[in-house]
């Protein structure tokens, strides 16, 4: 079953097409990354999926409930951490949580128990009776996560959850995402932190100019741009000339970096045998050889820069 199904979503602001006819599914119990540069339509899409923004066209299903026809049922299934910290500053951390418990119609005792657990988990329990307006950004973000998790939602929406946070807060939040996923929940992570998406996500969508450029598993995306694969080879003793590598099978480009050479190739498997021959012939002293696949960042840049070309190819 899909946790989220979005179909043909359209949202414009004046002449700007913030979201341009996008459709995708998020599988239940997965971590789905939503990547894109600033202004690509990430936040608008997430705000549509969470019921903040009403699109001009399209439909959204959350755990089988239509977001626009059964909003209460659909929203009961989700927890949201928006991009900007939006706790109630005039309420204490505890009051913020109890307010959420009341609007989700939770049993009071159960809510208090869960609130205490979450505050402990996010190291905020000692501050529970402090007004949230005195909290740091990291503390507010952790309190927002507590609020999002209090009702034990099936889907957690996170919009840039670690942006601008200290290392400790980032780590806590990432650990909680993993733990939450282990409990069988679905996570929709909107981020521009590619490394974070790479670490956490099972599937990522890259959005640009309101359109989805690609959706796939991070590993598949990396494979899809094989031409960015490269080998790093380091020599001791005599360092060969750059031109000596130019004729090797499969090598498309060579770059020298100190005693190392970076050999770019679409087919790294072809390069290695011919490289072995060259080493033997030239009596070179090989110190190390690494093959490297493209990083998700390179994939991201590739799809953002070549979106049009990719679409034509696809």
């Amino acid at each position: 079953m899909n946790a989220i199904s979005a179909r043909n979503l359209v949202k414009t602001y004046g002449r700007v097409e913030a979201v341009n006819n996008i459709s995708f599914d998020v599988k239940e119990q997965s971590i789905f990354g939503f990547l894109g540069p600033n202004g690509a339509g990430k936040s608008t899409t997430q705000r549509i999926l969470t019921g903040v923004v009403i699109p001009e066209a399209g439909s959204v299903e959350i755990m089988g409930y239509s977001l626009f026809e059964q909003p209460t049922e659909a929203k009961q299934e989700i927890g949201v951490v928006p991009e900007q910290a939006n706790v109630y500053g005039d309420l204490t951390a505890w009051e913020n949580l109890m307010f959420i418990a009341e609007i989700y119609c939770m049993n009071k005792l159960k809510a208090e128990k869960r609130a205490a657990e979450l505050l402990n988990l996010f190291t905020l329990y000692e501050k529970r009776n402090f007004k949230a307006k005195g909290f740091s950004k990291g503390m507010k973000q952790r309190l927002l996560l507590c609020m999002a998790l209090l009702s034990d939602p099936k889907i957690l929406f996170l919009d840039e959850p670690t942006t601008g946070l200290d290392v400790e807060s980032k780590q806590i939040i990432r650990d909680v995402i993993r733990r939450f996923h282990e409990q069988g929940k679905t996570i929709f992570l909107s981020t521009h932190d590619i490394e974070e998406a790479n670490m956490l996500c099972h599937e990522v969508a890259i959005i640009n100019q309101g359109r989805i450029a690609v959706i796939d598993r991070p590993a598949n995306l990396k494979q899809s741009i094989q031409k960015l694969n490269w080998l790093e080879v380091t020599f001791g003793g005599r360092v060969p000339e750059e031109k000596e590598f130019a004729g090797l099978d499969g090598v498309e480009q060579v770059k020298k970096s100190g005693h190392s050479f970076i050999l770019y190739s679409s087919h790294p498997g072809k390069v290695i045998p011919s490289l072995g021959k060259l080493i033997e012939e030239k009596e070179l002293e090989l110190i190390s050889l690494h093959t490297q696949e493209p990083s998700l960042e390179e994939v991201f840049l590739h799809f953002i820069n070549n979106e049009e070309a990719y679409r034509k190819g696809a």
Partner: peptide, 14 residues
């Protein structure tokens, strides 16, 4: 102004 209105819009409140 305080960005808490979005919290209300995402909650199961009509």
């Amino acid at each position: 102004m305080m960005k808490t209105y979005e919290r209300i819009l995402t909650a199961p409140i009509s």
